[in-house]
Protein backbone atom coordinates (compact mmCIF):
# COMPACT_ATOMS: atom_id res chain seq x y z
CA UNK A 1 0.00 0.00 0.00
CA UNK A 2 1.42 3.32 -1.04
CA UNK A 3 1.11 6.47 0.97
CA UNK A 4 0.28 9.81 -0.56
CA UNK A 5 3.87 10.74 -1.37
CA UNK A 6 4.56 7.39 -3.00
CA UNK A 7 1.36 7.65 -5.03
CA UNK A 8 2.34 11.13 -6.13
CA UNK A 9 5.72 9.83 -7.31
CA UNK A 10 3.97 7.02 -9.16
CA UNK A 11 1.69 9.32 -11.14
CA UNK A 12 4.46 11.88 -11.67
CA UNK A 13 6.68 9.21 -13.16
CA UNK A 14 3.89 7.89 -15.34
CA UNK A 15 3.03 11.36 -16.61
CA UNK A 16 6.65 12.00 -17.45
CA UNK A 17 7.08 8.71 -19.31
CA UNK A 18 4.02 9.41 -21.43
CA UNK A 19 4.57 13.10 -22.07
CA UNK A 20 1.56 14.12 -20.05
CA UNK A 21 1.22 16.71 -17.31
CA UNK A 22 -0.45 16.32 -13.95
CA UNK A 23 -3.62 18.23 -13.09
CA UNK A 24 -2.87 21.98 -13.02
CA UNK A 25 -5.56 22.54 -10.36
CA UNK A 26 -3.64 21.84 -7.14
CA UNK A 27 -6.67 21.13 -4.95
CA UNK A 28 -8.09 18.72 -7.50
CA UNK A 29 -4.69 17.03 -7.87
CA UNK A 30 -4.44 16.52 -4.10
CA UNK A 31 -7.96 15.08 -3.96
CA UNK A 32 -7.31 12.70 -6.84
CA UNK A 33 -4.06 11.40 -5.35
CA UNK A 34 -5.82 10.90 -2.01
CA UNK A 35 -8.58 9.08 -3.87
CA UNK A 36 -6.07 6.70 -5.43
CA UNK A 37 -4.46 6.01 -2.05
CA UNK A 38 -7.88 5.35 -0.52
CA UNK A 39 -8.92 3.01 -3.33
CA UNK A 40 -5.68 1.05 -3.13
CA UNK A 41 -6.34 0.65 0.58
CA UNK A 42 -9.94 -0.42 -0.04
CA UNK A 43 -9.55 -2.72 -3.02
CA UNK A 44 -5.86 -3.58 -3.22
CA UNK A 45 -5.27 -1.67 -6.47
CA UNK A 46 -5.54 2.03 -7.39
CA UNK A 47 -8.95 2.04 -9.03
CA UNK A 48 -10.01 5.28 -10.71
CA UNK A 49 -11.07 7.78 -8.02
CA UNK A 50 -13.88 9.21 -10.16
CA UNK A 51 -15.54 5.94 -11.05
CA UNK A 52 -17.33 3.37 -8.97
CA UNK A 53 -15.18 0.27 -8.49
CA UNK A 54 -16.70 -3.19 -8.35
CA UNK A 55 -14.06 -4.36 -5.89
CA UNK A 56 -13.41 -7.35 -8.16
CA UNK A 57 -10.04 -6.88 -9.79
CA UNK A 58 -10.87 -8.48 -13.14
CA UNK A 59 -13.78 -6.13 -13.62
CA UNK A 60 -11.85 -3.08 -12.52
CA UNK A 61 -8.72 -3.75 -14.57
CA UNK A 62 -9.83 -1.34 -17.29
CA UNK A 63 -10.33 1.45 -14.73
CA UNK A 64 -7.19 0.86 -12.67
CA UNK A 65 -5.06 3.97 -12.90
CA UNK A 66 -3.79 4.73 -15.49
CA UNK A 67 -6.99 3.42 -17.07
CA UNK A 68 -7.42 2.01 -20.56
CA UNK A 69 -9.35 5.10 -21.61
CA UNK A 70 -6.76 7.67 -20.64
CA UNK A 71 -4.78 7.94 -23.85
CA UNK A 72 -7.85 8.33 -26.04
CA UNK A 73 -9.30 10.92 -23.64
CA UNK A 74 -6.14 13.02 -23.41
CA UNK A 75 -5.91 12.83 -27.18
CA UNK A 76 -9.51 13.94 -27.72
CA UNK A 77 -10.25 16.18 -24.72
CA UNK A 78 -6.82 17.10 -23.41
CA UNK A 79 -7.42 15.30 -20.13
CA UNK A 80 -8.31 11.92 -18.67
CA UNK A 81 -11.78 11.40 -17.20
CA UNK A 82 -10.64 12.53 -13.72
CA UNK A 83 -8.39 15.29 -14.99
CA UNK A 84 -5.37 13.74 -13.30
CA UNK A 85 -3.40 13.49 -16.56
CA UNK A 86 -3.64 16.39 -18.99
CA UNK A 87 -2.11 17.56 -22.24
CA UNK A 88 0.40 20.38 -22.54
CA UNK A 89 -2.38 22.65 -23.74
CA UNK A 90 -4.62 22.10 -20.73
CA UNK A 91 -1.62 22.35 -18.43
CA UNK A 92 -0.98 25.82 -19.81
CA UNK A 93 -4.63 26.86 -19.65
CA UNK A 94 -6.31 25.20 -16.64
CA UNK A 95 -9.64 26.87 -17.52
CA UNK A 96 -9.92 24.11 -20.12
CA UNK A 97 -10.27 21.54 -17.31
CA UNK A 98 -13.83 20.35 -17.07
CA UNK A 99 -16.14 17.39 -17.28
CA UNK A 100 -15.66 15.08 -20.25
CA UNK A 101 -17.91 12.21 -21.34
CA UNK A 102 -17.46 8.72 -19.90
CA UNK A 103 -15.73 6.56 -22.51
CA UNK A 104 -16.08 3.29 -20.60
CA UNK A 105 -18.69 1.31 -22.56
CA UNK A 106 -22.12 0.80 -21.02
CA UNK A 107 -21.91 -2.98 -21.23
CA UNK A 108 -18.63 -2.96 -19.29
CA UNK A 109 -20.13 -0.69 -16.62
CA UNK A 110 -23.07 -3.05 -16.33
CA UNK A 111 -20.96 -6.20 -16.18
CA UNK A 112 -18.77 -4.66 -13.47
CA UNK A 113 -21.80 -3.66 -11.49
CA UNK A 114 -23.24 -7.16 -11.63
CA UNK A 115 -19.90 -8.61 -10.53
CA UNK A 116 -19.84 -6.43 -7.43
CA UNK A 117 -19.34 -8.51 -4.32
CA UNK A 118 -19.60 -11.84 -6.15
CA UNK A 119 -15.90 -12.74 -6.00
CA UNK A 120 -15.54 -13.90 -9.60
CA UNK A 121 -11.81 -13.33 -9.33
CA UNK A 122 -11.47 -16.28 -6.96
CA UNK A 123 -13.15 -18.51 -9.47
CA UNK A 124 -10.96 -17.35 -12.33
CA UNK A 125 -7.79 -17.79 -10.30
CA UNK A 126 -8.58 -21.19 -8.79
CA UNK A 127 -9.49 -22.71 -12.12
CA UNK A 128 -6.42 -21.43 -13.85
CA UNK A 129 -3.54 -23.89 -14.25
CA UNK A 130 -0.13 -22.44 -13.44
CA UNK A 131 1.52 -21.20 -16.58
CA UNK A 132 5.09 -20.03 -16.83
CA UNK A 133 4.81 -17.51 -19.66
CA UNK A 134 4.84 -13.80 -18.89
CA UNK A 135 1.77 -12.90 -20.92
CA UNK A 136 -1.45 -14.80 -20.45
CA UNK A 137 -3.75 -15.53 -23.31
CA UNK A 138 -7.45 -15.76 -22.53
CA UNK A 139 -9.94 -17.55 -24.73
CA UNK A 140 -13.62 -16.70 -24.80
CA UNK A 141 -15.42 -20.05 -24.42
CA UNK A 142 -18.47 -18.63 -26.16
CA UNK A 143 -17.04 -17.30 -29.43
CA UNK A 144 -13.36 -18.27 -29.36
CA UNK A 145 -11.95 -14.74 -29.23
CA UNK A 146 -8.37 -14.62 -27.90
CA UNK A 147 -7.05 -11.81 -25.72
CA UNK A 148 -3.44 -11.46 -24.55
CA UNK A 149 -3.49 -9.63 -21.21
CA UNK A 150 -2.95 -10.22 -17.49
CA UNK A 151 -6.60 -10.73 -16.66
CA UNK A 152 -9.53 -11.71 -18.86
CA UNK A 153 -11.33 -8.70 -20.37
CA UNK A 154 -14.44 -7.68 -18.38
CA UNK A 155 -16.58 -8.30 -21.42
CA UNK A 156 -15.74 -10.09 -24.68
CA UNK A 157 -15.49 -7.35 -27.32
CA UNK A 158 -16.91 -9.72 -29.93
CA UNK A 159 -19.81 -11.57 -28.34
CA UNK A 160 -20.17 -9.62 -25.04
CA UNK A 161 -19.73 -12.72 -22.87
CA UNK A 162 -18.58 -11.83 -19.37
CA UNK A 163 -15.13 -12.35 -17.84
CA UNK A 164 -16.00 -15.63 -16.16
CA UNK A 165 -16.65 -17.15 -19.58
CA UNK A 166 -12.97 -16.75 -20.41
CA UNK A 167 -10.44 -19.49 -19.72
CA UNK A 168 -6.69 -19.57 -20.02
CA UNK A 169 -5.64 -20.57 -23.51
CA UNK A 170 -2.97 -23.24 -23.68
CA UNK A 171 -2.29 -23.23 -27.41
CA UNK A 172 -3.76 -25.08 -30.36
CA UNK A 173 -3.31 -28.83 -30.08
Amino acid sequence: MRNKEEMREYVEKDAEENDYYLCPDDDLLEDLIEGLVENEKRYGYPSCPCREASGTKTYDSDITCPCEYRDADVEEFGMCYCGLFVSKEVNEDPSKLGPIPERRPDEVIKAAEEAKGKGYDKKVVSEAPSVEEDIEVWRCTVCGYLAARDTPPPVCPICKAKAEKFEKFKGFS
Binding site: L28, D31, C50
Partner: peptide
Protein backbone atom coordinates in the same frame (compact mmCIF):
# COMPACT_ATOMS: atom_id res chain seq x y z
CA UNK B 1 -18.29 9.05 -5.14
CA UNK B 2 -16.33 9.61 -1.94
CA UNK B 3 -12.92 9.53 -3.66
CA UNK B 4 -13.86 11.69 -6.66
CA UNK B 5 -12.24 15.10 -7.00
CA UNK B 6 -15.00 16.61 -9.16
CA UNK B 7 -17.64 15.49 -6.66
CA UNK B 8 -15.71 17.27 -3.93
Amino acid sequence: ISTCGWCK
